[in-house]
Structures are given as C-alpha cells and as structure tokens.
C-alpha cells in the first residue's frame, strides 16, 4: 500500500511541475486533452465498468455540458466558468431523462438505446439552430491566453473525479453498483432497488461528463455538434479509454486516457511527421485493432491485467 501511495505522490508532483518545466504549448495541450479524457473515462467507468450499464452514448452528456456552458456564455453573457457547474447539472437532468427511457432495457439493448440517444442529441443540436447555431457552432472568448490555468483546472477536475469514484466505490453504493452488474435479479432479491441505484450511478457519471464538456468549451472556445456529440470521437472514445486502461478499476481510465490521447496524436500527426501523410487516416483502423488485441490478451485492460503484463516483460527480459 505504501509503495502505491509513493508512486501516486511522485506522479502527482510530476503532473504539478510538468507545465512549469515544459513550456511547449503543444505538450501542455495534449495533457489537458488527456485530463478531459480522464474525467470522461472515469465517469463512463463508474456506469459501465462498475454498474455494468454499458453506455454507447456518453457524448450526450459531454455535448450537453459543452452546449450549456457555450449557450449561457454566448446568449446570456454568463461566464463559461459558471457554465461548468450548470453544464454538470444540466447533464445530470438529461441523465435522469436518459435513464428513465433507457433503463427499461437491459444489457445490449441498453447499450443500443444509449447509442441511438447520442445520435438523437447530435441531430437536435444540428437542427435546432435558434438555440445552438447548428453546424455553425458556438464560439466564445477564452478567458486565458496561457494554457497554464486550464492545465491546473483540468488536473483538479480529473483528480476530483477519480477521487469521487474511488470514494463512491468504498460505500454501500459501490457494493450495490457491482451487485447490479453481476446479477440484477439476485441484487433485487437481496433488497437492492436496482432502478434507483442504476440512476444514481448514471447521475454521478453524467454530472462529471457534463463538467468535462463545459471545461472543453471553456478551453477550446469553439464547439459544434460534430465534435461534442460525435459518436466516434466521444462515445466510442470513452469506451476505448475504459477498455484499454482497465474496466472497473480506479486508475484504468486515467491510464487509458493518456494512452489513447498519445496514440491518437501519434497517428493524427503521422508519427510526428516522420511517416507519410496517409498514415493519419489510419487511426480508426488502429484503434479497432488495439481493441481486438486488448480484449483477446488483456481483457481487464492495462491496469486490470498489470500483473500479467509485468510477468510477460519480466520473462522476456530473463530470456534475452
């Protein structure tokens, strides 16, 4: 336990000092994006990994959070930082509605319903031009020129999200979430109100995802439906972050976020300009292969199968 805490403290210090040492906007930007993914990944993990309700529609909450902040700032002139709170709360209200509809379904049917939900919200955001400006998108003034404040706000949000998930899983709620994942009927017969606790899990999850969306709005200054309600850039990416890092582990989504953002950037920039340009088109393909690889060999993700991964590396070192 102490060794683990030691690693955490060292990692924390590295993350705190990083932007003071590395002044490059580019690398700071990448880490801020990774922080956003830590939040979305951890929230997704609470609902899908721990509670077993696999969502293919987390873009709903991300988009709602981003649009809440954006619309409040653009139309009403309310600071987009207030929008972070409203973004989370609005995403939660939408979460209540999504839960009311989708929790009537179980397993893969729930997943498909959330998938459809994500597309519905994207189309609403595209077509309700009076409110959302449609495909033109929303542009607001960023508060800070420097990336530094965003970096620390992102870090604080990511850390508190992980901490909340960690705390939640230690309480009765945590036991109930996992029981529901393992067997809904058994859980109900043990006195667990499965509808209520699924909704609690969804509300926590949607709140943090909405906050992440509002933070994204603040940081990027521009959103449109194709970005924040995107199926493959948000909903699927959330699943990838969770699966690659480790479903139903506290640190899995954090690790997954950094791995996925790193990979995405590596491909987007065609291996930092070293490879021919067409390589950048291949990232979706590589993500697919990566998921197949992870599910076949490390079904519990990098964190969940860490012992296994360590063993493989240890063995190869021994033989060479």
């Amino acid at each position: 336990m102490n060794k683990k805490n030691g690693i955490l403290v060292v990692l924390g210090i590295i993350l705190l000092v990083f932007p003071l040492v590395v002044h490059s906007d580019y690398y700071q930007h990448l880490i801020i994006i990774a922080f956003i993914w830590v939040i979305i990944g951890s929230s997704w993990n609470l609902l899908a990994g721990y509670t077993g309700q696999v969502s293919f529609g987390h873009a709903i909450f991300f988009g709602i959070g981003a649009y809440t902040a954006g619309i409040l700032a653009m139309k009403l002139g309310i600071s987009a930082w207030w929008g972070m709170m409203f973004g989370g709360i609005t995403a939660m209200l939408i979460g209540l509605f999504v839960g009311w509809v989708c929790f009537r379904l179980r397993g893969p049917y729930f997943a498909l319903a959330t998938l459809a939900g994500g597309e519905i919200f994207r189309l609403i955001a595209t077509n309700w031009e009076a409110l959302t400006e449609g495909m033109v998108g929303i542009l607001i003034m960023q508060t800070f020129r420097s990336k530094l404040p965003y970096y620390y706000i992102g870090l604080a949000l990511a850390a508190s999200c992980i901490y909340v998930v960690h705390l939640t899983m230690k309480t009765k709620w945590g036991y109930y979430f996992v029981s529901i994942r393992e067997d809904q009927d058994a859980a109900a017969s043990l006195g667990i109100n499965i509808v209520l606790y699924k909704n609690i899990s969804l509300l926590i999850s949607s709140f943090f995802t909405g906050m992440a969306g509002a933070f994204y709005m603040n940081y990027m200054g521009f959103i449109d439906p194709e970005v924040v309600f995107s199926l493959h850039f948000v909903s699927i990416m959330a699943i990838l972050v969770g699966i690659v890092g480790g479903v139903a582990t506290i640190w899995g989504p954090a690790v997954g976020a950094f791995v996925m953002v790193g990979l995405q950037e590596t491909f987007r920039s065609a291996f930092f300009g070293l490879a021919p340009k067409w390589v950048s088109q291949g990232h979706a393909l590589v993500f697919g292969l990566l998921v197949i690889f992870v599910i076949m060999f490390f079904a519990n993700g990098i964190v969940g199968d860490w012992e296994k991964i360590k063993k493989i590396f240890f063995k190869t070192r021994e033989t060479t």
């Binding site: 996992v178 029981s179 393992e182 067997d183 058994a186």
Partner: peptide, 8 residues
C-alpha cells in the same frame, strides 16, 4: 439456479 455475484 444459483446466482452468485461472480466477480465479487
């Protein structure tokens, strides 16, 4: 048909 919460 027993329903253990398998991964707990």
């Amino acid at each position: 048909i027993v329903k253990p919460l398998a991964r707990m």
